[in-house]
Design a protein around this nucleic acid. Structure first.
Lengths: 346, 346
DNA sequence: ATCCTTTAGTCAAGCGCTTGTCCTGGCTGG
DNA sequence: CCAGCCAGGACAAGCGCTTGACTAAAGGAT
């Protein structure tokens, strides 16, 4: 039902109808006409055509886009749901809507279509799952954006990440303080920046403590359970035997822990374990996994805030400060051998 | 960057540019001009304005909308993720995009804004979490839609649900076949159609077997763990003591089971338990929960298919057949006392 | 050379809405 | 009694793009 149809019915011009339904220049329309138009609009189920409005006003929509690279388990992923929840809750507080733009076409033209085809004021991108070219497309298109978990290559973009290196450092440090010196590390997938940073944190802590980095104590994993299991088997078969294992993520850690237990080792008495991420499962395994908590929900919140700020200031200040690295937090549970939860000095 | 700007630069009319970029009436444009325009478009980062295109063509977008009533745990819900995955996978197979329209404003005008403000060819609605008025708004607006898990009130709409009554019947029947006669039922929230249907299935099976329905064996729950726990306590305190409990959903069943165990009862020897839904947790509890599997993912698939069919036929045939009730399936695990998984004679 | 057909475009209307400007009739005050 | 002023509303341009209709020039057939 179009505005002009209403206008005809009401016997007035389209402009008048527009003013009434948008409640603009309200004084310019008599109460009688106003009522008549409003009643008519209701009865005729008038719905403004958003394309036309957008075209005519040129004003940006009140909607944020969350670009979702879809693979079949996306919606089951803890990471995804936490980030999304953070973005949604924050956007909502500022009365903004959010559309989740699911896309499969991970190419430049795919992103172009996505951005051109959807009316959003800005987008949040998953840095670890979204093709890097998405960033340059946003730039070209003048579309405000923010990247969650940017990879290293996209350092100079508005983004929010967490302090992977610092977290890994804390984890390793913890094990050192508990007296361990044979500390193994199960890595993440090669080349992934977050995985690399965690490795770096591990090395840094060892070095600082004067402990040599033994290649035999570093086993490649890939963030998956399978990878964790296999890495742990190699570790247990090698020399020297680790007395503690720090895995680059919880899934690997949990898998590694089950391998250790099956090998007859007691956790934490015979071997201490520590993970990274603090996924929900971490507190349910036996023994409960000590890990580095990543504030994923807050990353979503932060991303939404940065994005909204940038939309607000549309290219004014360059706001290069829009890079946030969120602190991680050591969560002490049972798997690394502390009964109490002493604060890490530092 | 607008099409006319390209036209000026190229020294041709906007129509020519339009024809080139849309690859229409291609023969009408010389190869030289074509190349020139294409190059210019690339260099100037031309992106068509989707509003304008939509306005001019009037053709429906190639996108489905999934209306998400957002509450803070939406994205952690198994139900949500399964339905969404089903919709997404199916839409993708037909090259359609999906936008998840998150909304908080559960009112008529909220839905109006949502539908008017987003360019989608049709929407899937969550019947059990979406205000019923959404349906009439869709009707008014001429927006194709399909409802997942419709409530009884919306019987005559395109929808996909599962056979709650049949599933509950199967579950109860199972317990009867195992020799139970004191079969308790933990209900869902009052008034919810799916909960009511499950109750009906329970009653039907009892009646058919000539077992009286004892009010003392029916305890009100609300699909939550808390509700399940309390219901179970009442059941155990009452007379007669049930030898089997069928809970209207898995969460209640799992909670009830833990109450039973804490009361010193062995499951299934002292008391048999059966749930409904087949949530992932069901197979991980001890003992693993026998339950009625609901094909939630398939409901999503079905919904997408019905919706796409309706979009395709835009109001042609009324297609009143677009109501699908998916069959449930008994999944025999350990909690109701069968070692093997014998087929239920249908 | 003439007329017709292609070829390679241009023109302009129109999609539904917004908005600054302009118009009109009725009322006011002097 | 008339200029002036408002309230109340109409007009028209324009947002960026599409598309059927039209046209100018070039080539072909006769």
């Amino acid at each position: 039902m179009s505005l002009q149809r209403i206008a005809e019915q009401a016997g007035v011009s389209p402009s008048t109808v527009s003013r009434v339904v948008n409640n603009k220049h309200a004084g310019k329309v008599s109460e009688a006409t106003r009522r008549r138009i409003l009643d008519l609009a209701r009865d005729m189920h008038y719905l403004p055509n958003s394309q036309a409005v957008a075209l005519a006003t040129g004003r940006p929509p009140n909607t944020l886009g969350l670009v979702i690279p879809y693979y079949s388990h996306t919606f089951r992923s803890f990471y995804f749901s936490e980030v999304s929840s953070g973005v949604l809750d924050t956007a909502r507080r500022r009365q903004m809507d959010v559309n989740l733009l699911v896309h499969h076409d991970d190419t430049a033209s795919g992103y172009r279509r996505l951005l051109a085809g959807n009316r959003v004021a800005g987008v949040v991108l998953f840095g670890d799952q979204t093709n890097a070219c998405a960033i340059s497309i946003c730039r070209e298109a003048g579309m405000p954006f923010v990247v969650v978990n940017p990879d290293a290559a996209s350092a100079e973009v508005p983004s929010v990440g967490s302090d992977n290196e610092g977290g890994a450092y804390d984890a390793t440090r913890r094990l050192i303080q508990l007296g361990h010196t044979q500390i193994a590390f199960i890595t993440g997938p090669e080349g992934r920046p977050d995985a690399e940073s965690r490795y770096a944190g591990y090395r840094k802590a060892l070095q600082e403590a004067g402990i040599a980095l033994l290649p035999a104590l570093v086993a490649r994993g890939d963030f998956s359970e399978k990878g964790g299991r296999e890495a742990m088997r190699r570790l247990l078969a090698g020399e020297p035997r680790p007395t503690a294992v720090f895995a680059a993520n919880d899934q690997s850690a949990i898998a590694a822990m089950s391998v250790a237990k099956r090998a007859g080792l007691r956790v934490p008495q015979d071997i201490a374990m520590i993970g990274f991420d603090d996924i929900p499962l971490a507190q349910h395994v036996q023994p409960a996994l000590t890990t580095i908590h990543q504030p994923i929900y807050r990353m979503g919140q932060c991303a939404a805030e940065i994005l909204m700020a940038r939309i607000g200031s549309m290219g004014n200040s360059n706001r290069d400060a829009d890079v946030q690295i969120l602190r991680t937090r050591l969560v002490v549970r049972e798997s690394c051998g502390a009964k109490r939860a002493p604060q890490l000095d530092a």
